[in-house]
Write a protein that binds this DNA or RNA. Structure first.
Lengths: 251, 251
DNA sequence: CGACCCTTTGAGGGCCGTCAAAGGGGGTGG
DNA sequence: CCACCCCCTTTGACGGCCCTCAAAGGGTCG
């Protein structure tokens, strides 16, 4: 089995690698069987490709199984705002269920594997497995919290604070998924353009601020890996002292 | 019956003034009875007071019945970001169900009337009325879309564009609720400080930009009423051409 | 080895923030 | 009924953060 094969979802949801993590709530066998029945395919999307095209109604729901992605919106003249980043376990495409046009796009940052559910399955979930319906709402509320936090960052923090915030937050989210190595490093597939688009900054200013923080010794980004060298200083700068995260549901 | 009394929720949900509006989806009698049973009180919150205190776990869920409110977060040094505004029919407090501390506050902009549901009722909704559970998710996804839109505004639009966006968007939301008078005016209870906090601008710059748009004849704010004098120009400035809104659920 | 993308750095300017202070307007109390 | 007060609005001056323009340096892949 290659490393690549490990990134693919197994045939049986019971063997799901994500479900073994303590950061996800356990599921009953009945729920697991139901989820597996809803899963109609496990598509792969390579880095830079669209998972959901902007302004096109999304036909399906997904759980991101492996890899990174992001949600974004663009204005007519090309200005782009990244709304939030998506990591394994995140649920994708819920908005498309309730509006005619997908109001945002979703793009893969790395090669990704997805578990796809038919779009007509959402109502099934609520009607046949109430607990899973509750979990869908939970995931939706969680994503909204991410966007809330990003809005505060973009609206009220200066460039250095924004970058500190982004680095801590992404690092913490990766950590709870067990993606941090022994040296405290995580995969970091964002380009500086992505960071700029997420933080409402220009590419140039993003670079200058990022370098300043790096030169002071707060963090290190090298060969697409991020390490936080002074997490406490970063927290202080960002004014972000997050509590330990509770387990969340997984569909 | 005074005008004030009309702003209060009636005893029976079947008599709900909001439910007569075409912008809300119809409910079955069974669902209506269930909702009424969940409603445990109809508190009133006066302008400027907290509906949900920041950093305090919210014990309850609400539907905003009348009046305006807003969700916000503040940083340690006092900087405040308004996340979105709440109008009649909006659902309040869902986030508090899934996190220990309410990560944001909710404050009344005007005198408000609320329908309050016990916090232990959320699971009841999903388990006993699946369709209503589905609707809760719908409302959650709708609110996320508001925040998404605001994040784009704050991250990628300049001051004039931000203000144009806010004015159009709030006006449209009020219009579908039937709150627009014959002169095309709606109640507009925001101070310029609220606008600044919502748009990530300073109070001073908000004032200057607002006055510039007003002097050019795009809109008019007088005695707490907003009128759009040139909606098309505002749309063009904001790059915001929204489709007609679909009916949404109401709890 | 060249092409392309991403990163890095400098220069200059503009948008927007901060500071300061005066001008309404509505509510309260005398 | 008037006067005062407080909050909100308005305007000017000035400075700084961040944007735009420009161009060179590195890394990777065909």
């Amino acid at each position: 089995m290659t490393a690549d094969a490990a990134a693919q979802p197994p045939k049986a949801c019971a063997d799901c690698r994500l479900r073994q993590l303590t950061c996800f709530l356990p599921t009953t066998p009945a729920e697991l069987a139901f989820i597996q029945q809803c899963r109609e395919s496990t598509p792969r999307v390579r880095a830079g490709r669209a998972i959901i095209a902007e302004h096109r109604a999304s036909p399906r729901l997904f759980t991101l199984y492996s890899g990174w992605a992001f949600r974004y919106k663009t204005l007519a003249d090309g200005r782009r705002q990244i709304l939030n980043f998506l990591l394994p376990g995140d649920f994708i495409g819920l908005q498309g269920e309730f509006t005619d046009d997908a109001t945002h796009g979703v793009e893969a940052l790395t090669h990704t594997h997805l578990c796809a559910f038919g779009h007509d399955r959402l109502w099934d979930i609520f009607s046949r497995q109430a607990r899973l319906g509750y979990n869908v709402t939970w995931l939706c509320a969680s994503e909204e919290q991410l966007v809330d936090e990003n809005l505060v960052t973009v609206g009220r923090r200066n460039a250095a604070e924004r970058i500190a915030m982004l680095l801590i937050h992404l690092w913490r989210r990766a950590e709870r998924l067990g993606l941090v190595d022994e040296q405290g490093g995580v995969e970091f597939p964002l380009t500086q353009q992505h960071i700029a688009d997420a933080l409402g900054l220009s590419l140039v200013h993003t670079n200058k601020t990022l370098r300043k923080l790096e030169r002071v010794g707060l963090h290190e980004i090298k060969s697409a890996r991020l390490r936080l060298l002074d997490p406490l200083a970063l927290q202080r700068i960002a004014d972000y002292y997050a509590k330990p995260m509770r387990p969340v549901p997984l569909l």
